[in-house]
Design a protein around this nucleic acid. Structure first.
Length: 674
DNA sequence: GCTCTTGAT
């Protein structure tokens, strides 16, 4: 194959000699600062080179002597891998040798690794084995301003570790807004042994360094008066830009799939009437629910004279970078997850963005040349927006986090040094659930072996309990599969536009009367046996190949954990059983699920809706569930989420009422008191 | 009756 092309004969922009990056001239001062201060906060805009260059500077300055490692954490897997590959190239080494990465299911490091990129969640798990993270001389936490739960927890742990390891160097990279907050976090409580007016000691711990970025200016424009319908206004603005502004692609931020699909359709319909002098408009959708190949379209180079318009969720705000965007339209909304500790119900609602998000969105217009950002709200509206989003830790179900903290030896959750403390109700609710599952005892101490094992398994507490009960119900192999399948979060089925009927009938072929969990089990077993784990099988049956392959990895990993606990998994039982044996097995699986999910129980009413156990909450079966159009009595479900006015439950299985008392007696007696 | 913002172990 001829390998000559324009692409390969030029050096891509990413691989500019690193001496040209803005960070290069700060090299000496950065090294001095890291040498002098245990904690360094680096404020660096996109394109400053902090993530790729700083670890190399540290390495050459000797921070990897004695076999110590420089760790750089990222909130996302792709970031960890792509940055690692790039740094390896710059250093001219093979990935996995001096420079490596480690993410779930993929560890490309070796004994010679000196710079290691990884997800922050994985580093937290390493602390379970090595509480002081002694392998690392420097830990750099990148993208800390995103305030994900794992980043927040990691920062709390690092503050604690630092007191016992004064030689450890911590680097936090953050956007401007929060820098002071990190400084305060790492200095407060550190000078208690000294006199209080002595500020200089605090200043010895932590310092802030700013590095200029390499982006182009973006003009920000506001509406004079608020828009009535932001989707319609966004579409009109697309056509205004197309007829009045120069070349360049457009990125529009909307809140979800429905809005995006509608907008894409509206633009293609109205584009037919365009004056031919203007050139074509090509609208494209972008959201996480699309398959990988559909997502790739946004990177396609379009013919000259065609303008690309990408309608996206906030996936384009930080996770996906589309080259060539010159115009951004920001509708000012994002869907955010929230959790109500009183009902245990998560909700998903469109919320105004924060100023930080708005500026991140605007920045997407200035990556290749000067750009413009059209904010579909007034400047006054902007001023009244919150500075930053509410951190995830303040609006999530904390049961998994608290279980993990307990396993790390942090008994007193309330006294843990959180960057931002979670509300007391969230903590109380999580403790209550963990107690009812048997993970914590009456003194809120982690139980052994149950609680510590639950913490080690990479699934949420209710499923972890189910897994660890499965051996006694004689259905371990099946529950392993169900745990892997439910952790995919509903991405098992897949359909192209207009193929919904086809998908429904595919789904019916795998349906099992008792409910969604057994149906998922059926799908998995068909995929690995008849389907030979091949993409074609998925394609033929409207299944998501990427998800099912992931389920295979997750299942294997969970199985390894169980074997490490000394629990043997007998796979011979997993083969299809017939007749009475099969019914008995099915009942054991349903009982076992109840042992973990008793807190998620409901009863179907004559009208087909569900009520929770207390009776006060109306729940609807999610349209993806078998129970959406079938009869049932008592059921347990994996998840409940409020979207719009409806509270919907998904992954539903029929159970017997008596089982709830048999396996969840504690929970229901406690609930009655409250 | 008709569907999920985004990440992660």
């Amino acid at each position: 194959m001829a390998d000559f092309s324009l692409d390969s004969s030029f050096i891509p922009a990413l691989h500019k000699p690193s001496a040209l990056l803005p960070i290069a001239k700060h090299r000496e001062s950065l090294l001095y600062v890291v040498e002098t201060f245990p904690v360094t906060i680096v404020i660096g805009q996109t394109g400053s080179g902090k993530t790729t260059q700083l670890p190399q500077y540290l390495d050459s300055a000797g921070w990897c002597a004695d076999g110590k490692i420089i760790a750089v954490t990222q909130p996302r897997r792709v970031a960890a891998t792509t940055v690692a590959v790039r740094v390896a190239e710059e250093l001219g080494c093979e990935i996995g040798k001096e420079v490596g990465y480690s993410i779930r299911f993929e560890d490309l490091t070796s004994s010679s690794t000196r710079i290691k990129f990884m997800t922050d969640g994985l580093l937290i798990r390493e602390a379970l084995v090595d509480p002081l993270l002694t392998r690392y001389s420097v830990i750099m936490v990148d993208e800390a301003h995103e305030r994900s739960i794992s980043t927040d927890i990691l920062l709390g742990l690092l503050k604690k570790i630092r007191r016992k390891r004064p030689e450890l160097r911590i680097i936090i990279s953050s956007a401007t807004l929060q820098a002071e907050q990190y400084l305060q976090f790492f200095t407060e409580g550190e000078d208690s042994s000294q006199s209080k007016e002595n500020d200089s000691l605090a200043n010895d711990i932590c310092t802030i360094v700013s590095i200029e970025g390499r982006t182009f200016p973006v003009d920000v424009l506001y509406l004079e008066k608020p828009a009535e319908d932001y989707v319609e206004k966004a579409i009109e603005t697309v056509f205004d830009i197309h007829s009045q502004e120069g070349e360049g692609d457009i990125l529009v931020f909307l809140t979800g799939r429905e809005e995006i699909d509608n907008a894409v359709q509206a633009v293609s319909e109205r584009a037919i009437d365009l004056n031919s002098r203007l050139g074509r408009l090509q609208p494209l959708p972008l959201y996480a629910g699309l398959s990988t190949e559909q997502q790739m379209y946004v990177f396609d180079q379009l013919p000259d004279g065609t303008r690309k318009v990408v309608f996206s969720t906030n996936i384009a705000e930080a996770s996906v970078t589309i080259p060539g965007i010159v115009y951004v339209i920001d509708t000012g909304f994002v869907k955010l997850r929230a959790y109500d500790p009183r009902t245990g119900i998560e909700s998903l609602t469109a919320t105004p963005v924060s100023q930080a998000s708005a500026s991140q969105r605007a920045g997407r217009a200035g990556r290749t040349k000067p750009g413009k950002c059209f904010r579909l709200y007034t400047e006054d509206d902007y001023q009244s927006l919150p500075k930053a989003n509410v951190p995830e830790i303040q609006r999530s179900n904390l049961a998994p986090v608290i279980l993990q903290l307990k396993a790390l030896g942090i008994d007193n959750i309330v006294r843990f040094d959180f960057l931002t403390s979670p509300p007391a109700e969230l903590v109380a609710k999580a403790l209550e659930l963990l107690y009812s599952l048997g993970a914590l005892d009456e003194y809120a101490k982690l139980t052994r072996p149950l609680g510590s094992r639950m913490a080690e398994l990479a699934v949420e507490p209710m499923m972890a309990k189910t897994l660890l009960s499965a051996e006694s119900f004689g259905c371990l192999s099946e529950i392993l599969t169900i745990a892997a399948m439910t952790s995919l979060g509903g991405s098992v089925w897949f359909h192209h536009e207009g193929e919904r009927k086809r998908m429904e009938s595919s789904r019916r072929k795998f349906a099992v009367e008792e409910g969604d969990h057994l149906t998922l089990l059926n799908v998995y077993q068909a995929f690995v046996t008849k389907g030979k784990k091949e993409a074609k099988f998925c394609h033929d049956h409207n299944l998501n190949y990427k998800s099912l392959s992931r389920a295979v990895s997750i299942r294997a990993q969970l199985k390894r954990y169980l074997e490490r606990f000394g629990i043997t998994v007998d796979e011979s039982l997993a083969s299809r059983e017939q007749g009475a044996d099969n019914n008995k097995k099915t009942e054991q699986i349903r009982r076992c699920l109840t042992a973990g999910f008793f807190a998620h129980a409901a009863r179907m009413q004559p009208d087909g809706t569900f009520r929770n156990v207390e009776g006060g909450t109306i729940l609807h079966a999610h349209p993806s569930s078998l129970m959406f159009n079938r009869k049932a009595d008592w059921v347990i479900f994996h998840e409940v989420m409020e979207a719009g006015e409806k509270k919907m439950i998904r992954d539903i299985t029929k159970i017997e009422k008596d089982w709830l008392l048999e396996y969840g007696a504690e929970f229901y007696t406690v609930s009655k008191k409250g």
